[in-house]
Nucleic acid binder design. Structure first.
Lengths: 150, 150
DNA sequence: TTGCTTGCAAAGCATTTGCAGGGTA
DNA sequence: TACCCTGCAAATGCTTTGCAAGCAA
């Protein structure tokens, strides 16, 4: 997926760089590393998972920086932040996702079932418009129990 | 709203009492107090809010007991637990709600806009069935920015 | 050089848990 | 009398923050 700006198509990298410039922020090694890792992934994961992935590749970034950078990525629009459970946020790259999709979240075992339902999502977009509400997550969450945890 | 069991209608109190009996648990003063407070409310609130409400009425219950009892109320089905934001759960009594309803949650200021959309909710129920998923919250959440925080 | 960034450790919250004393059936 | 419950304080887990040193433009 490519993101558009002023009608032009931009890659995820370009989008983020443009965002940094606009905010007078700098592109650092750490931010590059995190952006790359996110762009290459198409799963949800928590900050801790990301940290481990990076460590495994020998790329050392502090926990604080991961949190701070993820917030920037979300703010710039290349990553979405999703509330998937008790007390943790998950992040998901928008780079590889073809479509909006939503989640059924098992509150017991944490299993996440993705689904897409165009009609529902279109309706949801309309509801947001009616309420002058701007979706950030581009998806919705339903909490409950998966088949194993019922 | 009344809850049904074996085709019979039960009040919230009866439902909870029956639940306790089934689980060999006891109806204590603290549980009564919390149940009453929940039944009388039709707003979402966090455990901390509940604690303050109770204190204001001179009813002293410990934080731990509030958490423990809310879990029981959820498990018994008279209260629903909703993930509405950063790192806090909210609870909502099912006693006064006529219908299922869902939430638009502002991730900046915490404002919560409730909405109902029957078609969407029916679709959602079907999606859950297809995935053998049992909704606990009876609603879904959409995260984003309200009109003031855009 | 200026001012944004980083890493570290400490702090902050919400929530859970161990334990000793107290209450319910 | 047996358990179940409560309150307290400590522990836990995720996230944020203050600060001094480091780095990009």
């Amino acid at each position: 997926m490519r993101l558009s700006l002023h009608g032009k198509q931009m890659t995820v990298d370009q989008t983020f760089e443009y965002y940094l410039k606009r905010k007078s922020l700098k592109m650092t090694q750490e931010r590059k590393v995190i952006l790359d890792e996110m762009s290459g992934s198409d799963r949800h994961f928590g900050p801790e998972d990301l940290l481990i992935q990076l460590r495994e590749k020998g790329k050392r970034v502090s926990r604080a920086t991961v949190y701070r950078t993820l917030d920037l990525l979300v703010d710039s629009g290349v990553v979405k932040k999703v509330c998937l459970g008790p007390q943790q946020f998950y992040y998901e790259s928008l780079a590889k996702k073809e479509q909006r999709h939503s989640h059924l979240v098992c509150v017991k075992c944490g299993k996440i079932i993705e689904f897409s339902d165009q009609a529902t999502e279109e309706r949801l977009v309309r509801i947001c418009q009616e309420n002058q509400f701007e979706m950030t997550s581009r998806c919705f969450q339903v909490f409950g129990f998966c088949s194993k945890c019922k």
